[in-house]
């Protein structure tokens, strides 16, 4: 299974399943095409491209590995140095002022209208929701909340067996 040529007896061969091998090959396809085209142009560019390929492949593998690593010990050691943090916070507040004044949003930020309301004047002039609708909604929400309280595990048998200790 580990060998590329063992696929003859591999019944999964038609299924394009994603395993650990697939991502290694896919992204480099573009590079291969590039390499072939380079080979037609001149011999020098082959070796150059190969070098470039190796380098980019190396970068890609390294980055992918860094992404795939699940570092469960890091949560304590990740705290930044106080100085660096202060630096960055100051940088942010300076830039924030710059960006805010440059973005032309000198107007006060406005909350968006609720979705589904295209013309506020129509919504505002519409007759108010009838009392029966309000009652309908409140009775339904009450029923929903009651139903949620009723969600519980059906007891069938006791989970714990106690041994016959005297």
């Amino acid at each position: 299974m580990g060998c590329c040529f063992s696929s003859e007896e591999d019944k999964d061969q038609d299924v394009p399943h994603a395993n650990e091998r697939t991502p290694l090959l896919d992204p480099s396809q573009a590079d291969h095409i590039h390499q072939i085209q380079g080979g037609r142009a001149s011999r020098n560019s082959i070796s150059q491209n190969q070098k470039g390929d190796e380098q980019s492949e190396f970068t890609r593998i390294l980055r992918q590995t860094a992404i795939n690593v699940i570092d469960v010990t890091s949560s304590d050691s990740q705290n930044m140095e106080q100085g660096e943090m202060q630096d960055r916070a100051t940088q942010y507040s300076n830039r924030l002022n710059m960006v805010l004044s440059a973005s032309g949003r000198s107007r006060v930020f406005q909350p968006n209208l609720p979705t589904g309301i295209t013309s506020p004047q129509m919504t505002l002039t519409a007759p108010p929701v009838s009392l029966s609708d309000v009652q309908l909604i409140s009775s339904f929400s009450e029923k929903c909340s009651n139903a949620a309280c009723e969600i519980k595990i059906q007891h069938k048998e006791s989970l714990v067996v106690t041994f016959g200790v005297p």
Binding site: I153, Q154, K156, E157, S158, L159, V160, V161, F163
Partner: peptide
Amino acid sequence: MLKPRALSDVLSQA
């Protein structure tokens, strides 16, 4: 001791 079957039966209810 826990009964494994009863436990997985309870878990499966969710």
